[in-house]
């Protein structure tokens, strides 16, 4: 009986620590969820004479994938992005972040290009406006240009099947 109280406290503390073990501290809740995607206007990677703007992200559910050739996670998720693009399930717009245009184009030639188009953001200005802090990051943007979800880190098959894909389906049934 003497030890009942301390035991309860210790068990409660252990429970908290155990939960903490399975949290990802890198996943900072994005302040953008439910807000309109910030406006921007930057050259396209494929053709710097043409601009890419926020309007290119609206009209239908779109993924905005922030990537760079120096980013390991981007290399990991790339085959899955190519597969998603091939399935035609959702258009993926790329934001090439703090990269060299030639490197980026060579990467797409070599590994396949899952993007309908790419914005070129060499100094990370657009990335800053979107609160990007670690690549890769993938935003789910609805028909009206509202950011619905942000996936931090590589898109894994698990994240795609259980997180992003159901969300896209839900948005479509809701007409967003």
């Amino acid at each position: 009986m003497r030890f009942a109280m301390p035991l309860v406290v210790v068990v409660a503390l252990l429970g908290l620590l155990l939960v903490g073990l399975f949290l990802n501290p890198r996943e900072v809740p994005s302040p953008f969820i439910g807000k309109a995607a910030p406006a921007f206007s930057i050259p396209r990677l494929e053709d710097p004479a043409r601009t890419l703007s926020r309007d290119d992200l609206t009209g239908q559910v779109t993924l905005l994938n922030v990537w760079a050739t120096w980013c390991v996670g981007c290399r990991q998720e790339h085959p899955l992005l190519v597969e998603i693009a091939r399935s035609g399930e959702v258009p993926i717009v790329g934001l090439n972040y703090k990269d060299q245009a030639n490197d980026a184009r060579a990467w797409l030639d070599r590994l396949g290009n899952p993007y309908v188009t790419n914005g070129f953001d060499p100094d990370g200005r657009v990335g800053l406006d979107y609160g990007v802090y670690g690549l890769p990051e993938t935003f789910v943007i609805d028909r009206d240009g509202v950011i619905v979800h942000k996936h931090i880190g590589a898109v894994t098959p698990d994240a795609w099947e259980n997180e992003i894909r159901p969300l896209i389906a839900k948005l479509r049934t809701e007409g967003r």
Binding site: V28, P29, S30, P31, L128, D129, Y130, G131, Y133
Partner: peptide, 8 residues
């Protein structure tokens, strides 16, 4: 900063 990265 808060607009972009949240209160964190």
């Amino acid at each position: 900063m808060v607009v972009r990265y949240g209160d964190f």
